[in-house]
Amino acid sequence: MKAVKRIHGRAIPFGRRNVDTDLIIAAVHLKTISRAGLGRHAFETVRAEPGNVFADPAFAGAPILIAGENFGCGSSREHAAWALADMGIEAVIAPSFSDIFGGNAYRNGIAAVVLAQNAIDRLLDAAWRYPLTVDLEAMIVSSPLGHRFTFEMDPFRRDCLMEGRDEIALTLSHEDAIRAYEERTVP
């Protein structure tokens, strides 16, 4: 997978809370047997709303999405992460993420960045006019208006993102431990 260290560009000021995976990608689009091509179906119900941010040409291809708490709740469908990645999203900034989405995100090269709601509110305002930068190395989200918000990230996930690591290969380096466990416990 592609390594991501620093993400810079427009940020879609979506802001909605409890963005569920059905909203990100509706079930009718889950019938694909490949990972690519889901981006054009992302946020379909939102895109049908008049004046929605996704229809704003200023945010076409934006690499960052800003949302409210509990982003990615609902199903375990990784299609949600694939759809975001296919749209060009490399970072989602929200006050909290569902556990499953948090995992699916980093495995698909998307940084799930947690910031407090008041920081999010300021970024939502700034994002209408200015690009944002998510720096994974320094763990800072910044804007040209002088905002600098630091965030924390699970070190393992951050490494995976920054190095574009293949997790299965990493695990297979523990083959001896897996075999020993199986000999000990699995009939």
Binding site: S75, S76, R77, E78, H79, A81, I100, G103, N104, R107, N108, E167, I168, T171, L172, H174, I178, E182
Partner: peptide, 15 residues
């Protein structure tokens, strides 16, 4: 529940 990358991971490694 797990995502598809994890499904692949479990199929390959059982962990």
């Amino acid at each position: 529940g797990i995502g598809t990358s994890e499904v692949e991971h479990v199929l390959a490694t059982q962990t």
